[in-house]
Amino acid sequence: MGLIFVALLAGIVMGYLHLLPDRVFQLTGKLTTAGVMLLLFLMGGQMGSDEEILAGLGEMGVQAVLLALAAIIGSVLAVKGLEVVVPFKPLEEERGREV
C-alpha cells in the first residue's frame, strides 16, 4: 500500500514544481480517466472470473443501495447538525465581516 502514497505524493510534488512539460501536464486528465478505466476493467475481470461473487451480486446490490443511502442521509444530517453548532454563512459575507 505504501507505493500508492508514494505515487500520490510524487504526483503532487511534480505538479506543484511544474517538473513536467506543459504538453505532458495537459494530458493528466486523460491519464486519470485511462487509469480508472484500466483499474475497473481489471477489477471486473477479477470479479467476473470469481463465480461466488457473481452468485452473490443480486442480493449484494440491494444491500449496496441501502448502505449508500444510509451514508448519504447520515452525512447530510451531520452537516445540518454542524450548522446548528457552528453557524456557516455564505463565504462572501464571512470575508466581508472579517475585513
Binding site: L3, I4, V6, A7, L8, L9, A10, G11, I12, V13, M14, G15, Y16, L17, H18, L20, F25, T28, G29, L31, T32, G35, V36, L38, L39
Partner: peptide, 14 residues
C-alpha cells in the same frame, strides 16, 4: 492504482 494516484497528485499539485 499507482498510475491513477500519480495522475490525481499531478492535478492537485498543479
Amino acid at each position: 492504482l499507482c498510475l491513477l494516484l500519480w495522475g490525481i497528485g499531478l492535478e492537485i499539485g498543479g
